[in-house]
Nucleic acid binder design. Structure first.
Lengths: 66, 66
DNA sequence: AGGCAGTTGGGTAATTAGGGCA
DNA sequence: TGTGTCCTAATTACCCAACTGC
């Protein structure tokens, strides 16, 4: 148990942010969300947001294999 | 703004980009990645991305070993 | 109050992945 | 051993118009 919860980078990134990190098109990031390959949070307006932790894991090659 | 300022030193290149730099087929670049001769990052879709720094080093003839 | 950048959606073309062969 | 080319399937990139976020 530890109350020293380190500030997890739970920042929410926009499709453009994630796209820049993966060197892909923002539209492609949206496809990943639709395909369920990455968790996505929808704003009341319908826009998607992604958790930086999730993106970091994906960049590390870590991910729900299959 | 705040676009997570992606350092130009860690930009990712597509197989086609790397292939053009080496004047080889993208297929050959893929083989290098499979052979572990160059670090590769996989997109959730399965495509590969290469670090520009890694490519630059290779272009300099700086091989891991001879 | 309006404005701009970014995102959404669908559709089509280009690129990439993988295996096998020369 | 290494690279190029063949194939099919999957993924990605760019086109448009309209909406959201700040």
């Amino acid at each position: 148990m530890s109350v020293t919860a380190p500030p997890p980078t739970d920042r929410l990134l926009t499709p453009g942010e994630v796209a820049a990190l993966f060197r892909v098109d923002p539209k492609t990031v949206t496809r990943w969300a639709v395909a369920g390959r990455i968790a996505s949070i929808r704003t009341p307006g319908g826009h998607r947001r992604f958790r930086e932790t999730e993106v970091q894991a994906l960049l590390r090659g870590e991910g729900p294999r299959d």
